[in-house]
Deep mutational scan, measured.
Amino acid sequence: NLRWTSEAKTKLKNIPFFARSQAKARIEQLARQAEQDIVTPELVEQARLEFG
Results as ranks from 00 to 15, higher is better:
N1E: 12
N1V: 12
N1I: 13
N1H: 13
N1W: 10
L2K: 02
L2R: 02
L2E: 01
L2F: 06
L2H: 02
L2S: 02
R3I: 13
R3H: 09
R3K: 12
R3Y: 12
R3Q: 10
R3P: 07
R3W: 08
W4C: 01
W4H: 00
W4V: 00
W4P: 00
W4I: 00
W4G: 00
W4L: 00
W4Q: 00
T5A: 05
T5I: 02
T5S: 11
T5R: 02
S6L: 12
S6M: 11
S6I: 11
S6T: 11
S6N: 12
S6H: 13
S6D: 14
E7D: 08
E7N: 05
E7K: 10
E7C: 07
E7L: 09
E7Q: 09
E7G: 11
A8I: 00
A8F: 01
A8W: 01
A8E: 00
A8C: 02
A8Q: 01
A8H: 00
K9R: 11
K9P: 00
K9H: 08
K9G: 03
K9Q: 10
K9I: 15
T10Q: 15
T10M: 14
T10C: 13
T10V: 12
T10W: 11
K11D: 05
K11E: 07
K11F: 10
K11N: 06
K11G: 07
K11V: 10
K11A: 15
L12Y: 07
L12S: 01
L12D: 00
L12N: 01
L12A: 02
L12H: 01
K13S: 11
K13I: 06
K13R: 12
K13M: 15
K13V: 05
K13N: 14
K13P: 01
K13W: 10
N14Y: 10
N14S: 12
N14Q: 14
N14D: 15
N14T: 14
I15C: 04
I15F: 15
I15T: 03
I15D: 02
I15M: 06
I15S: 02
I15R: 01
P16T: 03
P16V: 04
P16F: 07
P16W: 06
P16S: 04
P16L: 03
F17H: 12
F17E: 12
F17M: 12
F17T: 10
F17V: 11
F18W: 15
F18G: 07
F18V: 07
F18C: 13
F18A: 08
F18S: 07
A19P: 03
A19V: 14
A19W: 15
A19G: 07
A19K: 12
A19H: 13
A19F: 15
A19I: 15
R20G: 02
R20E: 02
R20A: 03
R20W: 05
R20V: 03
R20Q: 07
S21Y: 09
S21E: 14
S21I: 12
S21A: 15
S21C: 13
Q22R: 14
Q22M: 13
Q22E: 10
Q22C: 14
Q22W: 15
Q22D: 07
Q22P: 04
A23Q: 05
A23H: 07
A23G: 02
K24C: 06
K24R: 10
K24Q: 06
K24D: 01
K24E: 05
K24W: 04
K24S: 04
K24F: 09
K24Y: 07
A25S: 09
A25L: 12
A25R: 12
A25P: 02
A25K: 14
R26G: 02
R26Q: 06
R26M: 09
R26I: 10
R26C: 08
R26W: 13
R26P: 01
R26V: 07
R26F: 13
I27H: 01
I27D: 00
I27E: 00
I27V: 10
I27Q: 00
I27N: 00
E28H: 03
E28I: 08
E28L: 05
E28N: 03
E28Y: 03
E28F: 02
Q29S: 08
Q29Y: 11
Q29K: 08
L30D: 01
L30M: 10
L30Q: 03
L30V: 04
L30K: 04
L30T: 02
L30R: 04
L30I: 07
A31D: 00
A31F: 01
A31C: 07
A31Y: 01
A31E: 00
A31I: 02
R32C: 05
R32N: 05
R32G: 03
R32T: 05
R32P: 00
R32W: 05
R32K: 08
Q33F: 08
Q33R: 11
Q33D: 12
Q33T: 07
Q33W: 10
Q33N: 10
Q33Y: 09
Q33E: 14
A34M: 15
A34N: 13
A34I: 10
A34K: 13
A34W: 13
A34P: 01
A34T: 11
A34D: 04
E35K: 15
E35Q: 14
Q36H: 08
Q36G: 04
Q36D: 04
Q36T: 15
Q36Y: 10
D37N: 12
D37E: 11
D37V: 11
D37H: 12
I38S: 05
I38L: 09
I38V: 12
I38P: 07
I38W: 13
I38A: 05
I38M: 08
V39Q: 00
V39G: 00
V39H: 00
V39R: 00
V39C: 01
V39E: 00
V39K: 00
V39A: 01
T40R: 04
T40C: 03
T40P: 02
T40W: 04
T40L: 04
P41I: 13
P41W: 11
P41G: 13
P41V: 14
P41Y: 06
P41K: 09
P41C: 07
E42L: 06
E42N: 09
E42Q: 09
E42F: 06
E42K: 06
E42C: 03
L43A: 02
L43R: 02
L43Q: 03
L43K: 02
L43F: 10
V44G: 00
V44L: 03
V44D: 00
V44S: 01
V44C: 03
V44M: 06
E45K: 05
E45C: 06
E45W: 06
E45P: 01
E45D: 13
E45H: 06
E45F: 05
E45R: 06
Q46E: 07
Q46C: 06
Q46H: 07
Q46W: 10
Q46G: 03
Q46M: 13
Q46Y: 09
Q46A: 09
A47R: 02
A47F: 15
A47P: 01
A47H: 08
A47V: 15
A47W: 15
A47G: 06
R48N: 06
R48D: 04
R48A: 13
R48Y: 14
L49M: 11
L49Y: 09
L49K: 12
L49V: 09
L49T: 08
L49R: 13
L49N: 08
E50K: 08
E50W: 09
E50N: 07
E50T: 09
E50F: 09
E50A: 08
F51W: 13
F51I: 11
F51V: 07
F51C: 08
F51H: 06
F51M: 13
F51G: 05
F51S: 05
F51Y: 11
F51A: 06
G52H: 14
G52Y: 14
G52R: 13
G52K: 13
G52D: 11
G52I: 15
G52P: 10
G52C: 15
